[in-house]
Nucleic acid binder design. Structure first.
Lengths: 212, 212
DNA sequence: ACAGAAATACCACTTAAGTAGTAGAGAAAT
DNA sequence: ATTTCTCTACTACTTAAGTGGTATTTCTGT
């Protein structure tokens, strides 16, 4: 609690920008070190400012907030990006998280919520709504996977597929399962037929899905 | 709000089990339909009980809570699994989420927190602590990826690797990038050398990481 | 007891992937 | 200016993966 949270604000709407700056500046454990009116200007000079949290608008003319995070985060990974958005569009949020954002908050929130979100992200949390949290968590679970996994493939085939996904060669799978290589080959053939793919990588992508 | 939340409790410790049952039953919008003293018994007969939320202990003799979720969730995907644990071990939590749990809560919490977590999970949220939320979110971002991605491979190699990961054949990559197949082959060879792998799947697993 | 599904095994073949070099053109850094 | 890096392209070869069959056993449900 000794150090103040240093904040950069990126927001094209002058009114909102100044409002946010006012709210955050008036907290005694926070400090707005710089504000930017759009993504391009931000990207050019933000590395020169020491900060802990970047409050990033998602809808901006020119480069949008998601792209900005994607470009900026790798340069200073310790800085946390808090996305600020009007709409809780799961598509956007997801993409932003994948690009390196750590949380987000809705614009039409109270000042308290904004302050709380900044504190949460600065102290190691990931502010987000219950709905988005659920979406994020669900993307972990092999739910869609389970459908294919359970209804299409036999349990033996599932085992083989798991080993395939680990990158093992047929002969390694064969010795691990104590069956012949030709049997593995046959299983794989059947798996591919059921999944309607024709390579290991396609099968993996189909069943284990890819994030995003 | 019309329907009550129907709950199943799986917990080996009799005292805790009955305490939890008492707490949840006394809420007027909740109903404990059944309790189980261990995972095996639960797995055998839980499908016969209509429920919305399963409160699952993670540390149980015999089959642990994570395994139980993994086996049970696919059978009734609409049921939400709330993990109950003493220690906030990220390893466990992650695995549980991957296996289909939707949230978790610490045992040494107040009755209020338990009730709140159940309500949150039943209403579409994913109760978890700020720390775990952060871990979950971070796992989305291509942070570790970025290291290899940025420091080891050239930008051209990154592009090729992306296409490899999509399961394209060399000739497809070649035509997409408008270069020769042999060039693709060379790039791939170099990529594998840098990553110290010898197959497409290994490279993908190494760079894009695997969840879990 | 029997039908059907699943796992096992084998064969013959084609195609793709991976290994290991050399080498030139162009860009970037020294 | 010269070195170094990257991308490009080629040859030659080996190994793994994928295709498409047949056939036997074993298990499960009727």
């Amino acid at each position: 609690m000794a150090k103040r949270i240093r904040i950069i604000i990126v927001e094209d709407d002058k009114e909102i920008r100044e409002l946010a700056e006012g709210i955050l500046s008036s907290e005694k454990d926070m400090e707005v070190v710089k504000t930017f009116p759009n993504g391009e200007i931000f990207l050019k000079s933000w590395v020169n400012y020491e900060c802990d949290v970047v409050l990033m608008d998602i809808n901006m003319p020119g480069k949008n907030g998601i792209e900005c995070v994607g470009e900026a985060k790798p340069k200073k990974p310790q800085v946390q990006f808090l996305i600020s958005t009007v709409f809780e569009n799961p598509q956007y949020i997801f993409q932003a998280l994948c690009n390196g954002a750590t949380g987000y908050m809705l614009k039409n929130n109270t000042a308290d919520k904004l302050v709380a979100a900044v504190r949460e992200i600065a102290s190691g949390g990931s502010p987000m709504s219950a709905n988005i949290a659920r979406l994020v968590v669900d993307s972990f679970s092999r739910k869609q996977t389970a459908e294919i996994h359970n209804e299409l493939l036999t349990s033996r085939e599932k085992e083989i597929l798991d080993l395939l996904a680990q990158g093992l060669m047929y002969k390694e799978i064969a010795s691990k399962k104590e069956i012949g290589v030709e049997t593995v080959r046959k299983h794989v053939y059947n798996i591919y037929e059921k999944l309607q793919v024709n390579s290991r990588t396609e099968a993996i992508n189909k069943v284990y899905g890819k994030q995003l």
